[in-house]
Simulated scan of single mutants.
Amino acid sequence: MPHTITVHYAQGILQAAQRLGLPVPVELQAASLEPRIPLQRQDAFWEAICTASGDPLLGLRLGAALQVGHLDMVGALLMSCERYGEALEALLEYFPIIAEGSEFQREQDATQVRLVYRPSYAVRREERVEAALASLVHLTRWITGDQVRPQRLALGHAARGEPSRYAEVLQCPVSFDGTESSLSFALADLDVPLIQANALMREHLRALADAQLERLGAQSLAARVQHLLRQHPRWGKERVADQLELSGRHLNRKLADEGTSFKLLREELLHAMAEQLLRENPRLSEVAERLGFSDESAFAKAFRRWSGMTPGQFRQGH
């Protein structure tokens, strides 16, 4: 089936283009009753508005004009997360709802985390990459109350206009002609609280987003594994593989093709769930029980391996 994007994202770009006075053919305007817009129509839309505009930074300006609501339920889900790191994980998992085929991938070292953007389209690629990254910069500032800004936005193509204009629009350093397009954030930014965090709303929206992903059939195997583990953190590899109608060995091979492993996915998810539970202040024994550890000592040992601190030290710092 052809890839699609959410109508809200398409309408956000359309409305921003209209505010700039760009002519948009009627047949390319997103119909409000369509929940998904075929990517081919969006290709034609971008070709039309870029041809009509003489602004080399059009994509950048359109992306910066997008609002949280233009990202469908994903925007509301990100906004309801407790901390910025949790919002980034939700973005990686649920981005197919916004745009099928394209994806963000996370890379992390001792000082920073990078979100690498891998688009699925070819038509007006540079303009659309700039729009996607600019929208994420804008969203980040909004949901964190302007506490988080990227350390750098890197583009895998040459500057389309005066480089200083990029910094003016994005309010962060920008580099060009790299091997890929990405956003870099300080590792400490992951712990910044969001201004509209809402645990009940987050879980409600996550359930809706899971159902939407299932309907789209767009989940990667890694996302499906994480979804099962979030619901059943005690499950091991064989149980998860059986649920996915795979052997344990086949599951490992397919996850390796996606650049990950069952062990890594499980530990990343348990770490994130542990931090969330510790912030909510249940008893340590309850956290260990809910995450499937034999006792508090086993959980504390695992948590120290994940984070470099004890559960008690983590609570004192948060």
Rank of each mutant, 00 (worst) to 15 (best):
L22P: 01
W142N: 01
Y94V: 00
A188F: 01
A274H: 00
A223Q: 07
A300Y: 06
F45L: 09
P150F: 04
F314P: 05
I97Y: 04
S307M: 03
S261I: 06
P173N: 00
W142M: 14
D109F: 10
G292E: 08
T260F: 15
S102L: 11
G21K: 10
D72V: 07
L269E: 02
Q67C: 05
V68E: 14
R266P: 05
E127A: 15
E286S: 11
R253V: 11
R41P: 04
R266F: 03
L246A: 01
L190G: 04
Q219Y: 02
A31D: 15
Q171A: 13
H227S: 15
H250N: 11
A122L: 12
E93N: 06
L255M: 03
L255Q: 00
D177A: 13
D189N: 07
I13C: 00
G317Y: 12
L91V: 10
P2I: 09
T144Q: 06
E180L: 02
A222C: 08
S294W: 05
R266H: 07
A122C: 07
L14P: 00
R152E: 10
I195N: 05
P119F: 11
R266N: 03
L14M: 10
R315Y: 09
D210F: 13
E268G: 08
G145S: 08
V116I: 12
R41V: 05
